[in-house]
Simulated assay, not measured.
Amino acid sequence: MVAALLLIMYQSLLPGLLCVCLGFLGSRWFSPRLGVLTRSPDHRAPKLAATVVTLIPLILIAVLLPRARGVILDAPATYRELLGFMANTVLELRERLPFDIAAQLPAGAADVQRAIASYLASKAGTLAITGRAWLSGLLFAFVGLLIGALAAARPSVIPLRPLTAQLHLRLTRFGETFRQIVVAQFWIALFNTTLTAIFLLVVLPLWNQRLPYTMALILLTFAAGLIPIVGNLICNAVLTLVGLSVSPWVALACLAFLVLIHKAEYFINAKVIGHSTHMGVWELLAVMFVMEAVFGPAGLVAGPLFYAYLKKELEASGWV
């Protein structure tokens, strides 16, 4: 399992792995419900569920792609522009702040501004070459979903031989960990994204204020929301900086709104994820810091999942 997970990270197959688990658990969730709804025999319900799970993304793509093609295919270019926009906002910080506040900034603040802007510009340059990787990730995600759905539809073989039994046990534990962390984090991210969309598309326009790159910010909120703790910090920084490009008061409103909804998220995180996986905040932060240093942004997503699985294996063996 350790070798397989490392191989997945080094070959950038994490989207495929997550979608394998999603396809498998989704098919298993749909199977009994579709069986009752359609009155299908027990051996046909899993195949019907696998078909539904496989067709759902294809139907969504067919319906949404004509309208959201630019958002999906041009995402790397859009976020590259957003990072450049944020870099310019940081450089123009003194001009955007009220004079009384700007005058209080220390002389060394300009160097800090240039350092932050250079960092954002470097990340924008990295995004310039990720277009093909982005499309490959989408392909791996769909193939993973298909594999997971087909695995769920496969009839169980009993009794299991020793190697198969051990693999089944490990995969079962990994699936439980995925359900506890990723599924819970998905609903948290969806909750966060819904409130953010209402704030950006409804509340701010009522004040005659609009943020640039609104759709990109909403999608970023969902993607960052899948990362425990750190994702909230990323959302706070990006939305506040973009709000600052409009006015200091909009930036303050964005920050206040984000603090309020993220307080609710911390409560949900502590209750849902921390309680079910026995992980403390310091453990999550340490693991994500190391995984991000080794594997880049993908490590931020994989870190909590892999660590929780490792801890589950050690607890089952009586080591911790």
Rank of each mutant, 00 (worst) to 15 (best):
L244A: 05
I268K: 00
V53K: 09
A103W: 07
G318P: 09
P228E: 03
I72N: 04
L83G: 04
A128Q: 15
V320W: 09
L34I: 03
P205K: 09
P297Y: 14
H275Y: 01
I261Q: 02
Q209L: 13
G274R: 07
L64D: 08
Q11H: 09
I218C: 06
L244D: 10
F140H: 06
A50D: 14
E95N: 11
V90L: 11
P46H: 12
Y309H: 13
W282D: 12
A298E: 08
L201T: 11
L310I: 10
K123S: 08
W29V: 01
W187M: 02
Q104N: 12
A184H: 01
E265T: 02
A316C: 02
L206N: 07
M1V: 05
L5G: 01
K123F: 14
R33A: 03
L5P: 01
R69E: 06
F191K: 09
T196R: 00
L83T: 05
A4D: 04
L13T: 03
A49E: 13
F24P: 03
I59P: 02
G23P: 06
L204V: 05
S12P: 00
R69D: 05
A110F: 05
G231H: 04
K311A: 02
W134V: 04
G231V: 05
A115P: 05
R179Q: 13
R67P: 00
A184Q: 02
F142M: 06
L55Q: 08
L64P: 01
M215K: 06
L97K: 11
I188Y: 02
A302C: 08
R28H: 11
A293P: 01
P159R: 01
L135E: 10
I273E: 02
A223M: 10
L22M: 14
L200F: 11
L285C: 12
R210P: 00
V301E: 00
A103Q: 13
S247A: 12
R94P: 03
W187V: 01
D111P: 00
L6G: 00
H262G: 01
A152M: 10
V281I: 15
F295C: 05
G26I: 04
Q180A: 15
D74C: 03
L171V: 13
G299K: 11
A264W: 00
I198H: 00
L64W: 12
L105W: 10
F222I: 08
E265D: 08
A77E: 14
L145S: 12
A251V: 12
A298S: 14
A110K: 12
M288Q: 15
L7K: 01
G296V: 10
A149K: 14
L150S: 12
A133W: 03
L252S: 09
